[in-house]
């Protein structure tokens, strides 16, 4: 496994607020990596910096060995980094099929016919269970359905990594299950995922690696089993102590050496 996405010491502040204070982590090729942390810990800002919606004050983002720090959102998207938004965003007055086709011109010319054929678009809608509504405007869908359409929209371009911002947020349990199935299945086909999510059952269920953020930096990285017992993580969530220094790592849970960002 090699790192497909590598974030090194990224900083970003809004006025006096330090949203990202030296955030570092990496997403291994072929993994489903979860990014968790309390509200306001900088997860969405991190997403925005990676995908070019927000610039970084310092630090670097590398994708597939290439420095993409500071590239505009359309360029990052065209390189093969797909993303969805926390509050799902679809094109409300376009039909589902049209929604899927918006990204057509962003893929190389040679692949457009293949990726955006009617068959494949319908397949994608079938994949998220919405074929029935193919000709309906996306604005008429329920919130959870929009999340699925957004996923299909991103999938249409066959990105190599997909960033999902709260894929299970605010949707009903049936759809959450469906979303989890879809992600696992795509992952088996080789798609890499980085996802932000508050639903721990969901995260622990589908992620290979979980990175925990607090106050703008990653404070722990590991497999779900390890992370959920890490005292620093419990601290971050439950607010155990007020001092900035996290408790020392117990001997039993080694932190991943290659993924930095230990210092808060």
């Amino acid at each position: 496994m090699s790192a497909l996405l590598e974030v090194t010491d990224v900083r970003r502040s809004f006025g006096g607020l330090q949203a990202l204070s030296g955030c570092s982590f990496s997403v291994q090729r072929g993994s489903v990596t979860g990014l968790i942390g309390p509200n306001g810990s900088g997860k969405t800002t991190m997403f925005n910096v990676i995908t070019g919606y927000e610039r970084a004050d310092a630090g670097a983002v590398r994708f597939d060995g290439r420095d993409i720090t500071g590239l505009s959102a359309d360029k990052v998207g065209a390189l093969g980094v797909g993303r969805t938004f926390q509050l799902s965003r679809v094109f409300g007055r376009l039909t589902l099929l049209e929604n899927l086709r918006v990204g057509r011109r962003a893929v190389p010319k040679s692949r457009r016919k293949e990726l955006f054929s009617d068959e494949r678009c319908l397949e994608l809608l079938d994949f998220v269970g919405l074929t029935r509504l193919a000709q309906d405007p996306a604005g008429s869908l329920s919130y959870g359905q929009r999340k699925l359409v957004e996923l299909a929209m991103v999938l249409a371009q066959e990105p190599s990594v997909i960033l999902l911002d709260e894929p299970a947020g605010g949707i009903n349990p049936t759809l959450i299950g469906q979303m989890a199935d879809r992600i696992s299945e795509l992952n088996k086909q080789g798609v890499t995922f980085l996802l932000v999510e508050h639903n721990m059952e969901f995260v622990m269920g589908i992620c290979d690696v979980v990175a925990v953020m607090e106050r703008g930096a990653v404070i722990a990285v590991g497999d779900p089993g390890t992370v959920r017992h890490d005292p620093r993580v419990l601290d971050a969530y439950l607010g155990g102590s007020l001092d900035d220094e996290p408790d020392p790592v117990p001997a039993g849970s080694p932190a991943e050496p290659d993924q930095a960002g230990e210092s808060a």
Binding site: D126, G129, P137, G177, Q178, I206, Y237
Partner: peptide, 28 residues
């Protein structure tokens, strides 16, 4: 237009299983 009800039964072609089923809240 569906105003909120969940998508119907899994009519989708693929057979699906959640790979690692429910671990309860890892943090609390």
């Amino acid at each position: 237009p569906a105003a909120g009800p969940p998508v119907g039964p899994p009519t989708v072609g693929q057979t699906v299983t959640v790979s690692r089923p429910g671990l309860t809240g890892g943090v609390s």
